[in-house]
Design a protein around this nucleic acid. Structure first.
Lengths: 237, 237
DNA sequence: TAGTGGTCTAGACCACTGG
DNA sequence: CAGTGGTCTAGACCACTAG
């Protein structure tokens, strides 16, 4: 682990423990340089991390202030790259199971071709899974993945975690692009998510990219409106 | 403007013009050091910006690759800090008007007190505005702001842009925290957004923070589900 | 093994804040 | 004015990738 991350971890810990209380100032960077035997560039990098997390705010001339973070301190997700629902839930110790509703191989439609940047002859998996959280229907996921990027996908894997399997394959992610919107529930949603005809759906459309820039997943997640939201933190650059 | 931003701008421009095509490699950092007469740390910082924007991806040992960015290249919003709807729309040359439905001063409820980190005796503005985009109802905004942070707010200002006014006051923002969810439309929504009883709503709940860490705005934006979505880009750190 | 990007340093100068 | 954080440099070492 890089030194700047270690320092960021220590400082974050002090903030959470109240060693540096809300509205107080962090020690100035030169002091931190001495404490951690690091260069100022390194200290600065550590503080930048905390600043991206919304924990502190630095201003030229006046110092680095610890912000009140009550609003998001008990958020589960650290707003970072997607590792699949299974991992999310493991971290919070909530039982997640999956029911495979559909699993096939097909040639991609125009839309899927565009989203996954592939040609018409390039086969893809089509997967529909119902994710069940603590015995209640949670999300209905429609997923498309190029077959060559995920060799050996089986029904058994789908019942557990695709992302665990991708981890075993040594796949590395670069990032994801998402669109979030509200939608009316369709018959599929009503049947599997067990929702009323006038219940809305929170749809998250997502393309996940690999390190080499190739899209590995295009999916639409249909979430029960009363079970799932999306949180995000925007920090001035 | 810092040197690393200037360099990032030049590189971004070259990528968008196709001087560095998709899937090709950027010149290595030492070459860029010579071209821009900068240190490697500065070049690295410039590349980090592009990487945060999802334009390139760097890997130790193999170089920095230009990614395909067709999926989000025509996105309007650069996913950064909120500057108000008015500014968003000015940039895309779309006519936005506002109808002030409610404007009053009140003492905050428990919920508002928490969200704005203020006491019960601390008065706030309560504002309800209907934003109309190109003659069609777009968003119904319920907004609360501490009165002392926004002195001299008038009906006239609300008809145009709060954020323009805050700019005049010299207010500086630090960031925002948002929750996004789907919801059923209520009578208010139906009346002002002109939507059907079974039309869903995309609700964005938001707290905007100042540089000094004080929340300046708590709002709930009720968006017509067929007119507005939310896009975001997640990049591996 | 050669070439790449990631990290780190020590020191410098500057812009800004606040008394 | 003194003290703060923001930027920048030149050079160094290391981790990783690929031929």
């Amino acid at each position: 682990m890089p030194k700047y991350e270690e320092i960021a971890n220590i400082l974050r810990d002090r903030i959470k423990r109240g060693v540096y209380p809300s509205d107080s100032l962090l020690p100035n960077q030169t002091d931190l340089v001495h404490e951690f035997s690091a260069s100022r560039m390194t200290i600065k990098k550590a503080i930048t991390i905390l600043s991206m997390e919304g924990l502190v705010y630095s201003r030229r001339g006046s110092g680095t202030k610890v912000l009140k973070h009550t609003f998001w301190e008990n958020e589960t997700s650290p707003f970072n790259v997607y590792h699949g629902l299974s991992k999310d839930m493991k971290e919070t110790n909530r039982a997640l199971t999956s029911e495979v509703i559909h699993f096939s191989v097909m040639f991609p439609s125009k839309n899927i071709q565009e989203k996954l940047s592939i040609e018409e002859q390039h086969p893809v998996y089509k997967i529909i899974r119902l994710r069940i959280l603590e015995d209640k229907p949670y999300v209905l996921e429609h997923t498309y993945m190029p077959t060559d990027l995920v060799p050996g996908l089986t029904d058994e894997i789908l019942k557990h975690s695709i992302y665990d399997y991708l981890g075993e394959l040594g796949v590395q992610f670069a990032g994801a692009f998402r669109n979030i919107r509200a939608a009316k529930s369709d018959q599929y949603d009503q049947k599997y998510l067990n929702c009323a005809t006038d219940d809305p759906i929170l749809e998250v459309e997502q393309v996940v990219y690999l390190e080499n820039g190739r899209p590995i997943e295009y999916s639409r997640s249909r979430n029960r409106y009363d079970q799932r939201g999306y949180s995000l933190l925007d920090v001035k650059a």
